[in-house]
Every structure is written in C-alpha cells, then in structure tokens.
C-alpha cells in the first residue's frame, strides 16, 4: 500500500459512478404503471372530460362486454395484415435485391422508387375502392404496396453497400450468381433488410387500419370509426388498445428474428 493517505472522498469517488437508481426495465414498467393509473384516475376525477378519455376500467369492461364483435374485427384485421405483410416483404424484398444488385437498374429505378415512396398514397385509396370494392382485397393491396416501398429501399440500400471484397472473394471461389446473392449479399445486407422489415411492418399495420377507417364494413379500423361516430368512447379506446397490441406483437416477432440473425454483429455499445 502506498504511504500517502487516501482521502475519504477520493476513495468513495468510484462509487458515485453508479447506474440509474433503477434498472431501465423496472423504470419502463413503472412509467407504464403510472400512465395506466393516470388513465384510470384522471377521468374519474373529471380532470379530463370522460367523453374524451374513458377510465381504463370502463374501457376494459366495455371491451369484455363486446368481446365477440372485437374478436371478429381483430380476426379480419389480422388476416389483412398478414397477407399485406407477405406481399410487402416478398415483393419488396425481391425487387430490392434486384434493384440493389443490378447496376444499370440501380441508377435508373431506385431514385424513382424513393420519390414514389414520398407520395402520400392514402389520398388515392378512395379510387382503389372504386375499382376493387371495399372488401379485404383493397386493404391488402393498399397496405401491401404501401409497405413494399420501404422494404425495397432498405433491401436495395443494404445490398448496395456490401463490401465488394466479399463478392470478389466469393467469385474467386466459384460462387454462381445465385450463390453470391443468397450466401453473400443477403446475409451481408441483413441488418439493413431488418430495418426494412420493421418499417414495412408498421406501415402495413397503419395502412390496413387507416384503410378500414376510410371505407370498410369490417375490421378494427372500421369498428373504431363506428364507435366514435356513436360517441361510445370506451369502445373506441378498447379498439385502439387492440391495434397497439397487434403492433407490439409484430414488433416482438421482428425482434426475435433480429436477435437470432444479427448475433454476428460486433456489439459496438459494449466498447
């Protein structure tokens, strides 16, 4: 031990550098609990008008009371989202791979795709319903196309920025075009493809629900608008909760894929 006396404050200095007083997870849960409590208490105390915000317990009660209606609507919405996702991921992914890896197309078509992406398509939705009706197909097509654009752009961007050294090495080892695509470009572009999955996923959900709100006879979006026009505020909120649950579930699924597939990435935040 060095002879110099260590002052108490210096000795305890490292202990000051503690983390937050609660682990982030607990903090998140606590915040959520506080919000839910406020949701229950504020309308009850009439601090916010109950017509605008119904207390949480009332919302849940009315949800349970109309469980059948909600379940049916949720089923419709889930099926629409599923089909639209398959379309957005499948077609968007394939187009993204092609546009990202074929040089001449890349320069000509990609800028076009990104400017189309900027157009608020929802204004054209009434036209679409005029052509193909207000059934599930119109939602699937609209939301599918809506989600397809970010999927194309993210996939193409990922493929385009793959280190050419990987492709060169694979070519020298005799990889065919298909092998280069699926064994080099796709895995190398996967982090970017994942963000495509995420953005396309939320756009598809938004697309389906909003389309249902605009013109429909079924689905959560339809139900929410209908209850709103009848001023059944608790039911409106219950519908919104269900939409949030769907988004959360989708996010969870993508998170699973992410954890599995992107394990190879060096974790920069640890350094």
């Amino acid at each position: 031990m060095p002879a110099t006396a260590v002052s108490p404050s210096a000795a305890s200095a490292p202990r000051i550098r503690r983390g937050p007083w609660l682990p982030p997870r607990a903090l998140g849960l606590l915040t959520l609990a506080a919000l839910l409590l406020a949701w229950e208490v504020l309308p009850r105390l009439e601090l916010v008008p109950p017509v605008l915000v119904a207390p949480l317990s009332t919302v849940l009660e009315s949800g349970v009371a109309s469980a059948g209606t909600f379940a049916e609507a949720m089923g419709v919405t889930m099926v629409e989202i599923a089909f639209a996702l398959v379309f957005a991921y499948g077609v968007g992914g394939i187009l993204g791979l092609v546009l990202g890896s074929v040089k001449p197309l890349r320069g000509a078509v990609l800028p076009l795709v990104s400017s189309i992406y900027a157009v608020p398509f929802i204004v054209a939705y009434p036209l679409l319903t005029a052509w193909i009706g207000i059934g599930m197909e119109s939602k699937v097509i609209f939301a599918g196309i809506y989600g397809m654009f970010p999927m194309i752009l993210a996939t193409a961007a990922g493929v385009r920025t793959v280190d050419p050294a990987f492709v060169r090495a694979a070519r020298s080892m005799g990889a065919t075009r298909a092998q280069i695509l699926f064994q080099v470009l796709v895995p190398a572009a996967f982090p970017s493809i994942l963000s495509g999955l995420r953005i396309a996923g939320s756009l598809v959900t938004i697309g389906v629900v909003v389309a249902e709100m605009l013109a429909s006879t079924a689905g959560l979006g339809f139900l929410i608008t209908q209850y709103r026009s009848m001023f059944q505020t608790p039911e409106v909120y219950f519908g919104i909760i269900l939409v949030l649950c769907l988004t959360g579930f989708l996010d969870f699924l993508i998170g699973c894929v992410e954890r599995k597939a992107a394990a190879w990435r060096p974790r920069k935040e640890l350094i």
Binding site: A165, A169, S172, A188
Partner: peptide
C-alpha cells in the same frame, strides 16, 4: 476458374457472419 486458380487476398476478406 476456381478449380484452377485460388486467391488469398491481401485484406482478409472473411465473411463476418
């Protein structure tokens, strides 16, 4: 022609995943 010619590149071009 991979059966005839192989390369060990200057920068290790290993696939990171």
């Amino acid at each position: 022609r991979p059966a005839d010619v192989g390369v060990v590149f200057q920068e290790a071009s290993l696939l990171p995943w």
